[in-house]
């Protein structure tokens, strides 16, 4: 009785699939589900959140001390809190068409960024793919792009205002023209770096241009494309604030300009914090999507 039971044991421990006898495949042991260590997780969380919090508190204290004396040029944190607390505690109030919470203003700006950046992402990847694939296209277009990409975002504004004769599409165009270069150039580099092996596979399979684009090029260049998108989204957030200052509307950029004109310095400081946080979130969002999409590509 005991002998067959012993014989059976190794089979049940290594759940190898039924296979012909001749070629034995040694299946690796399944990785044990690692026990979730809440204590270690808590410690890591603390180790990562405490240092930045301490730094912020110290900086706030320094700021408070430096600007507390009467007649200082900038308001200290306590004054920001006292004067602009309505902006801080409720980001989504609506008191009138021009008097809305900062959260809503950010959303208006984000909508513009979405249009401009979305267009830049699509065009950047397409044109980048063409340049990456064709040596002649690259030779023809690369010098032009290298010059154009150094033009500062706001320098495009007057010309786009003249072309579109409206502030809304002009602002979107400025975002587009700012964000497209890193996407385009990174995509081109990514595609130029596709290993010859993958191209050989595509050739043996006789993939056509469209199949090659979606099945080989985009996945293979995805890590490059996403680092371009990440730089692009940061640049578009930089550009939108500047563009809105000049074009008006209800975006966060115009709010700062408006607050400056009515000497509400504390409101500007709150708006700056908003812009910084939103930019941070945008960056993390793109890098998060990139991490999901490109998982496995670096194997």
């Amino acid at each position: 009785m005991s002998l067959p039971a012993q014989k059976d044991e190794p089979v049940s421990r290594f759940p190898a699939p039924s296979q012909p006898e001749k070629a034995k495949v040694i299946s690796l042991k399944q990785a044990l589900p690692n026990n979730f260590d809440f204590k270690a997780l808590g410690m890591t969380l603390l180790a990562n959140t405490v240092p930045p919090l301490v730094v912020v508190l110290v900086l706030l204290a320094v700021w408070q001390v430096a600007f507390s004396h009467p007649g200082s040029s900038l308001p200290p944190p306590s004054e920001v809190w006292a004067q602009s607390w309505d902006l801080i505690i409720d980001p989504f109030f609506v008191y009138g068409t021009q008097d809305i919470g900062l959260g809503l203003r950010v959303l208006v700006s984000l909508e513009r960024v979405a249009y401009g950046f979305g267009l830049a992402a699509i065009c950047g990847v397409l044109v980048g793919a063409i340049i990456g694939q064709s040596v002649w296209m690259m030779r023809g277009l690369d010098p032009l792009f290298q010059v154009l990409r150094t033009v500062p975002p706001l320098a495009w504004l007057p010309i786009s205002l003249a072309a579109f004769m409206d502030s809304r599409p002009s602002a979107i165009f400025v975002i587009f023209i700012t964000a497209i270069w890193p996407v385009l150039i990174n995509t081109a580099v990514g595609i130029r770096n596709i290993p010859q092996d993958y191209r050989n596979v595509a050739q043996v399979l006789r993939l056509n241009q469209v199949e090659f684009f979606f099945k080989i090029m985009i996945p293979a260049a995805a890590p490059y494309i996403f680092s371009g998108l990440r730089i692009g989204v940061g640049l578009s957030w930089l550009a939108i604030v500047a563009a809105e200052m000049l074009t008006g509307g209800v975006g966060i950029g115009f709010f700062i300009w408006d607050a400056w004109n009515s000497s509400r310095l504390t409101d500007i400081i709150v708006a700056l914090v908003y812009i910084g946080l939103v930019g941070f979130v945008l960056d993390k969002l793109v890098s998060f999507i990139g991490a999901i999409v490109t998982r496995g590509t670096t194997a």
């Binding site: 092996d197 050989n200 050739q203 043996v204 490109t294 590509t297």
Partner: peptide
Amino acid sequence: APGPDRAVVFQNHSLLPW
């Protein structure tokens, strides 16, 4: 021209990692 009638097993496997 290359084609699937002459399939190649590449030295470094050339599987698509994604």
